[in-house]
Amino acid sequence: MSASPTNASPKRRAPTRRLMAPAVLFLLIWMIVPLAMTLYYSLQDYNLMMPDMRGFAGFLSYELLFTDPVFWDALLNTLLLVATCLLITVVAGLALALLFNRTFVGRGIARTLAISPFFVMPVVTGLIWKYMLLDPVYGLFSWVMRSMGFEPIEWLSSYPLLSVVMMISWEWTPFALLILLTGLQSLPEDQLEAVRLDGANRWQEFRHIVLPHLGQVLYVVVMLESIFFLTSFAEIYATTSGGPGTATTNLPYYIYLGAFYQYDIGLSSAAAIGAVVLANICAIFLIRFVAGNLNAGSQR
């Protein structure tokens, strides 16, 4: 949409490097230093319980990590969590955005209410769901089940990962809704009119005009949400604590357990590096996707 940023006038040569230096320096300290330290610790044999017995361990931590079944559980849980939450939030967000893009009485209030879950802090989200909604004794869901004559479900112990997915989706659907709604509102009305005159029905209108228009916005939603879903922690910490067993242990929680329960800095650093690699694999795909689409959508 905006022109490419590289077409500054060629005659005026600003001292580019010097002007860029603060930003680059800041990024170096902010990102490279912690990353390097994590890398360094992942190669150390370093447990806080035995701080004196410290030394170079080579790839021992990685070996332990890859042979630890809990790590693989955590990896699978992370991927499952990210995939299902993405699917639910994007589909529900899109449906709600289409709904809220129509005119109806009280739309302003309805929009505000629909977006409000996003303003709730993750820990609070966890507590609300754990005690007010999912609790088998005095939760809202169990009351509904009982009043319809069913046995209440013990969500957190019977379907722990699904419960976490529900919480995170509840929190993040408004985000998708918000961004997709702004995308919908930037769709020129005359394109819809043109396609209607061209003989399209409602579905074809959505499929051929609305969806392609939302393309870039969808990618932005997917990218940002995957980053946040990869690092979800508070909801799990406040509700299931990674359990029962390893049912809801994702990578961040696994790292947390390694560092603050086993005090094994080496192992959790190695796991953190694993998480960085995973995030980067996601990011590379997404950035390519987004960059390609931004280029395609520019100068529109």
Binding site: P188, A194, P212, H213, G297
Partner: peptide, 11 residues
């Protein structure tokens, strides 16, 4: 119909 803004499908 031909629109003032042309309303071509950009993609």
């Amino acid at each position: 119909m031909v629109f003032q803004s042309y309303a071509l499908y950009p993609h």
